[in-house]
Design a binder for these strands. Sequence first.
DNA 1: CGACCCGCTTGACCGGGATCAAGCGGCCGG
DNA 2: CCGGCCGCTTGATCCCGGTCAAGCGGGTCG
Lengths: 246, 246
Amino acid sequence: MTEPALATLTRLRTACSQCNLRELCLPVGLSADELQTLDNLVSTRRKVRRGDSLFYGGEPFSALYAVRYGFFKSTLTSGDGREQVTGFYMAGELLGMDGIGGDRHTCTLTALEDSEVCVMPFARVEDLSRNFEPLQRHFHKVLSREIVRDQGVMMLLGSMRAEERLAAFLVNLSQRLTARGFSASEFVLRMTRDEIGSYLGMKLETVSRLFSRFQEDGLIEVHQKHVRILDIGGLKRVMAQAQSAP
Amino acid sequence: MTEPALATLTRLRTACSQCNLRELCLPVGLSADELQTLDNLVSTRRKVRRGDSLFYGGEPFSALYAVRYGFFKSTLTSGDGREQVTGFYMAGELLGMDGIGGDRHTCTLTALEDSEVCVMPFARVEDLSRNFEPLQRHFHKVLSREIVRDQGVMMLLGSMRAEERLAAFLVNLSQRLTARGFSASEFVLRMTRDEIGSYLGMKLETVSRLFSRFQEDGLIEVHQKHVRILDIGGLKRVMAQAQSAP
DNA sequence: CGACCCGCTTGACCGGGATCAAGCGGCCGG
DNA sequence: CCGGCCGCTTGATCCCGGTCAAGCGGGTCG
């Protein structure tokens, strides 16, 4: 393949209108025509190696990022050094929205496997939003959904027991993977037990023990990072099993 | 006072440019000129009696609300009926952003004292945003700050001990009251122990016991809903006291 | 290909906060 | 002004999940 041909291919693949993630990403719900307008939303791509960070808490904010492929965690570090995992992000999801409010990022985004993101300079996002109502509407929805997602986590952490939280986590993961065309029942965890634990407000030993318990109960099969869901209905039942005694 | 004069007064007071909350509310940071542009952002006012709800989870979304005076809690109800308090809101804060993403509200907003809000039809917010860059920028910041706030709560719930959470809650409350010109050290809690507990992921008995402990330790004085903060530095120390043993 | 390190599992024990229970008192409505 | 109820406090006990500890195994890097 000659050099110019390669460049063209890359250019083509950079366009939102050609991206196979458009059904999951910022341009959700736009018509083919409308999508053309977005083709200069993304300035560049950026690869992030496993273990490297896309940005750090405290860094100046300048752009949003859409995950093309890979897997990220976001972490918040408190004054006294404690680290809290605040989310996991996969293909088509938007990163960096925490930075808009204070012009610097509040959390750190770290790749849990080799990943690539689309870089969308925020000034450009706002420009296009002002001139292109469908994008504006959708961008607001994405921001709002992040708020709703966070509130869901608050409910998880505030009112559910450890086993309910882990079941909810697995169900959520399975659903998001399904939406991306992966198997709903068999997947590889990209994060460690410690990271799951931090996200769910429990210790890594508890995560490990609960995985074992779920396995004994025939709900899942676990082998290190490999998980196979055997009984999704059972997991959903665990997740909602509020002490239902009279 | 004649009827027309009263109407005029009301009209005047409805304008953002005349509102004494503008430093806390949506129009933060706008010049006097720019503020004029916002004067038709607010369609009406709405009073909400203590105990009544501004909107319920599941209701169609149509507007954002800015608190003029009063105090609100937001709650999320899970499938199995458990209720989680996800936030408390006071004058100048924006309500209803959870509804943008799915065109219906996900949480319920209930007044904890007699309150009043400005109603801002969301279509109008988006219209004005498209034509008025400073509002757009600020609106995005408000949305982002809500995300950051929620992440802070996730850190609270996920990685702090009960006494650290309650200390953080009191410090936060004190700071927000100060910003509104109230005493930083003496205030009346508008919410019950149960509501504080739900928000902080603990039981009402634990909240009560911790209040008593803080009082014994000379950090605060509590008498039912009356709280006086005696040692804000001490509270901040409790809040960050990660097990700092070697 | 092989060794080492890191992440995972599992056990034993402990303790913070939940649960259950009882009594008090402030506030609201009659 | 008075009675009742709801919200708060406090005690006793329990148990879930944290902590400490030890060993294993698999993936990664030399």
